[in-house]
Nucleic acid binder design. Sequence first.
DNA 1: CGTCTTACTGATAACGATTGTCAAAACGGT
DNA 2: ACCGTTTTGACAATCGTTATCAGTAAGACG
Lengths: 134, 134
Amino acid sequence: MKRNTWQREAVRTALSESDGFISAQALHGQLRDGGSTIGLATVYRALTDLTDEGEADSLTQDGEALYRACTPDTHHHHLICRRCGATEEIEADPVEEWARRIAAEHGYTRAEHVVDIFGLCPACSRLSESAPSA
Amino acid sequence: MKRNTWQREAVRTALSESDGFISAQALHGQLRDGGSTIGLATVYRALTDLTDEGEADSLTQDGEALYRACTPDTHHHHLICRRCGATEEIEADPVEEWARRIAAEHGYTRAEHVVDIFGLCPACSRLSESAPSA
DNA sequence: CGTCTTACTGATAACGATTGTCAAAACGGT
DNA sequence: ACCGTTTTGACAATCGTTATCAGTAAGACG
């Protein structure tokens, strides 16, 4: 049976109060700063559980996993600058539908998709024109 | 000055011959299997360079970085089975168009996109029903 | 063609993020 | 309050990746 502990609740609360994506370690540090004695492993476990239960979204950015409280209505993807690393959230409704259809057509179940666009953001595009790197 | 070594060329070749995304370690293993004595660190360095130079795209899936040769002859995407690793090539024309539009709307240039669908193939879906892992 | 400079290489150590381990503590039904 | 089970927290282990460093070789120059 799943138990209800203050640790899990603390992670859930901290995550929903946190603005945007946050790493497990950062969240742990934040909790400790707030006086909590919660352990790092517990934070990882809680975040994994929350993600499994659909209460949190996760993505990996530069080798570390970032988590965000899930607002179930906003599944979106990212537009990422190859040079400066800036990311923008983008809507991909047509793609969601397409992905579902393709998976179904091929008999695939439990389909998840990775949809990200890499490019040069406006600022870096200008830099690239004046000082081409390649 | 940038030098031209057989190691770098080997990585470039292996990457472009590889179908879809591949991890640095897998690429290294593949090269070693092919008789090369190339070192793991060199593969990482070459892949990083190729990515910086825009000759390769990278994404991180499940904690590890995957690489793919940029500007492939036949641009297509993949439907990948999470359990058995089978991949099917899929057409994504509507997505190509959508990606171009999104990038343009946000002022991004030189846009490349990563579109892959992960799921369970028909066979593994059946297995999963009779012996659920989660 | 030989030499010299210096970027590149490869083995390994170091590193950071994450996961496994396991005894102790906490939860919740009784 | 008691008991069985789950969860916790500290720490070790693991995994992918990066830094280190002495040795090697690419490419410029004579």
